[in-house]
Simulated scan of single mutants.
Amino acid sequence: MAGHAMSDAAPSRDEALDSFLDKWRARWPEWAVAQAFVRPEQREVALAWAALQQELTDAAWGGSDARPGEAKLAWWMEELQGWSRGIRRHPIGLALQKLPVPWTTLGAAIPSLRESRERPRDRDEAFAALAPFAQAVADIETALFDATSTSVSVVQAGLLQARLAHTNEAAVPMSVIARAGEGATTHAWAAELLAHWPRGDAGRPRRVWNALARQRLRRGDASQPLPPWSALWTAWRGARA
């Protein structure tokens, strides 16, 4: 009976947190080797922070109907405001809520992330639509990872790669569709992102994430994980950048 009761029990908060971390790991299995180039004391925070960003961007960009995602984003705005007051409901808050970073700033930037769901006209608009949210992300990463000042453009580029990986053709600007023609749009957008990938300062986790993102684009599929040997080499170079 005890075993049966245990199996029917609700998952613990730690198990719930792990489920969200595992969602991010499933998309980025390269982290298993790439995390070696992030300081040990930063790895748990980096993983939880990446998982939080994925929850927000999935809500903003996922699905054919925007309304469920909009509701999730509204909930997250309240949640992040609560974090600043020491209140948390979401399991990711176990790893992040107590950290002294501007969670209210991130919550205030969520409406701009919601609006970025609209297909951009061109590359400039794709970057500009994400600027407020990317600024909030950069501010948090500067505080989390001892970066002198995380570059907003570097965060924007990483977000655009993530959107392409998650939504495929829906992420491609109209100008790229018009130029590339049917069937070649995602490759054309990946090539344009690579050609205009910004340089800038960032903490080591962001440098590693973006290095992996760029290498995926170079290999021709934003959503396809890198082989372990490529992930290791890419993460090493990203950490040294």
Results as ranks from 00 to 15, higher is better:
207 R>D: 03
116 S>E: 05
68 P>K: 04
71 A>F: 03
149 S>E: 15
21 L>W: 05
101 V>P: 04
72 K>I: 04
9 A>G: 13
70 E>I: 06
219 R>H: 11
160 L>M: 13
188 A>V: 07
118 E>R: 15
209 W>F: 12
236 W>N: 11
159 L>S: 04
48 A>Q: 01
204 R>H: 08
138 A>K: 01
135 Q>V: 09
193 L>G: 02
82 G>M: 00
46 A>S: 13
3 G>M: 13
169 E>I: 11
110 I>V: 07
143 A>I: 07
193 L>Q: 01
231 A>E: 01
50 A>Q: 06
137 V>P: 06
203 G>P: 00
164 L>Y: 04
133 F>S: 08
27 R>M: 10
58 D>C: 11
154 V>H: 07
18 D>I: 10
95 A>K: 08
147 A>C: 15
60 A>C: 10
104 T>Q: 11
87 I>Y: 08
233 W>S: 11
128 A>W: 05
132 P>D: 09
46 A>D: 14
235 A>T: 06
44 E>K: 11
181 G>K: 11
78 E>V: 09
195 A>S: 11
15 E>C: 09
74 A>H: 05
96 L>F: 00
31 W>G: 09
224 Q>L: 12
161 Q>F: 08
108 A>V: 02
214 R>H: 04
138 A>V: 01
138 A>L: 06
175 S>E: 09
26 A>I: 03
192 E>F: 03
179 R>C: 06
172 V>D: 02
1 M>E: 12
225 P>E: 10
203 G>Y: 00
182 E>R: 15
153 S>E: 14
229 W>G: 06
110 I>P: 00
47 L>C: 07
66 A>N: 08
137 V>R: 09
4 H>S: 14
88 R>D: 00
107 G>A: 04
79 E>T: 01
148 T>S: 11
186 T>A: 07
69 G>Q: 02
10 A>T: 12
141 E>D: 09
32 A>E: 14
236 W>R: 15
119 R>D: 06
153 S>N: 15
158 G>W: 03
236 W>S: 12
232 L>G: 04
86 G>A: 07
139 D>H: 11
142 T>P: 04
167 T>K: 00
51 A>K: 01
97 Q>S: 15
87 I>T: 13
19 S>N: 10
18 D>W: 09
157 A>Y: 04
122 D>I: 01
53 Q>P: 03
88 R>H: 01
45 V>I: 08
28 W>H: 15
154 V>K: 12
54 Q>W: 02
177 I>R: 15
154 V>I: 14
162 A>S: 13
19 S>T: 13
194 L>V: 09
187 H>F: 04
136 A>H: 02
94 L>T: 09
163 R>W: 01
59 A>K: 03
72 K>V: 10
33 V>N: 05
